[in-house]
Amino acid sequence: MEVGQIFATILYGTLIGVIYGVATVGLNVIFGVLRIVNVGHGAFIMVGAYTTLVLYGSLGVPPPITIAASILLGAVLGLITYYLVIKHLVDAPELATLIATFAIGILLQETVKAIYGSDTRGFSWNLGFAEVLNVNIVYSRLAAALLGLLLLIALYALIYRTKLGLAMRAVVQDKEGAMVVGINVDRIYALSYTLGIMITVASGSVLAIYLQSGIHPYMGEIYTLKGFVIAVMGGLGSIIGAFVAGVLFGLFENASYLILSQIEGIQPLVLTRSIAFLLLLTILLLKPTGLFRR
């Protein structure tokens, strides 16, 4: 094993980890407040990726600015799906919300497919690179990770430094109590859900800037799955947990590749998937509330 390999593993594990973190927090915000698992999560990420693709590809809008568009689009999609669907299911059995969010995901995928087709698309936003230890450090990937970090900080500030955030946390702690002190719980639900969708769609843009390829209607599914693993790792509902778990997961994936690739006759990158899910099951069994919660 060469030094360059280890360096690349840490560097790219951390960078993709930050992206994973941003792409997971939305799931956590929604679960934290509404106790709903958004099974259609990945489809919202895909919508964000298309937003960047379309705005940059056909209008030339600089990719970082497309994130703002994604946030707006996320707000619209969030409000629509909340008032049309989720609102009616807040007190329904878990089964109903699991299937409903799933159906929303399918609807988004098929709509995007009907508009843009099922072709895989991509774009080129080349910022150059630096070479260290025979490893190319790709600037556009660094930029994407930084933008993701900014999004996370903004979300953190919103939840821990504003009145709205206070109300949200109050609802999480004690729904009845929050009602008694005059918090409109329904509105908090609507806002939290929408906030979760906004950050998820925005994370799709960040992801698109990071990868710049592989954008197609079904690209989100893998992030739903990875999102679940990361969310459970960090504790469903925890924002900082999602971020830390995202970075850890990125490192874990890359490091397990490095280790597995030493074994002959197996396919390491494919197996990292199995290992990730094994990790998920282990955490679920030993500490279902996540690694960072007491």
């Binding site: 699991l98 799955l225 679940f228 469903l236 006759g265 197996i266 197996l271 998937r273 998920l280 069994l285």
Partner: peptide, 27 residues
């Protein structure tokens, strides 16, 4: 099945995908 609702749903997805990539990865 020691897990409830959402956790169970997530775990079962993990089992399915984990098995698939085990078959493919170990050949």
């Amino acid at each position: 099945l020691r897990l409830r609702g959402a956790y169970f749903a997530i775990a079962t997805i993990g089992v399915n995908e984990g098995l698939r990539y085990l078959v493919e990865g170990l050949n």
